[in-house]
């Protein structure tokens, strides 16, 4: 049993070791850096736009699995799909300043908890 699982591990990791991370010298790396620099003053449009660029560059670099490919399909995609793409780009902005709302909801749930605890003690007496 133990030997088997060890073998399985070696088998699974084999490819990872056999192919050392040479890909780190990818031409798309600089995009990542640029990404970090601007991360604070992004707007939704910018992100969408950059996303697009991002993808474009990768297409040029020979990559197929990119968001650019997805964007190209957006026009005639099913609604759920369209939504997912839009959603994934807007989510970080939704989160901004939302904590107040969350605290409000938390307070409501806590109040409910207190009601139940009160009920619990009333019952015991």
């Amino acid at each position: 049993m133990r030997v088997l699982s060890l073998l399985l591990l070696v088998f699974l990791f084999g490819p990872a070791w056999a192919q050392p991370p040479s890909a780190s010298a990818s031409p798309a790396e600089h995009v990542h850096d640029e990404h970090c620099e601007h991360e604070h003053e992004l707007t939704e449009e910018e992100i969408l736009h950059r996303h697009h660029q991002h993808g474009q560059e990768e297409v040029e670099a020979g990559s197929e699995y990119t968001s650019a490919g997805l964007h190209a399909q957006v026009e005639n995609a099913p609604a759920l799909y369209k939504f997912m793409i839009r959603e994934s780009n807007s989510e970080p902005f939704r989160l901004k300043g939302q904590s107040v709302l969350v605290w409000r909801d938390t307070a409501v749930v806590c109040a409910l908890n207190l009601v139940i605890i009160f009920w619990f003690y009333r019952r015991r007496q």
């Binding site: 990791f13 990872a16 192919q19 890909a23 990818s26 670099a61």
Partner: peptide, 20 residues
Amino acid sequence: VILLMLPAYVNSFSLGLSAF
């Protein structure tokens, strides 16, 4: 183990690093 193996997919799907 599956997650640890992710780097192995880079070459098999010929992804760029950023996309990866």
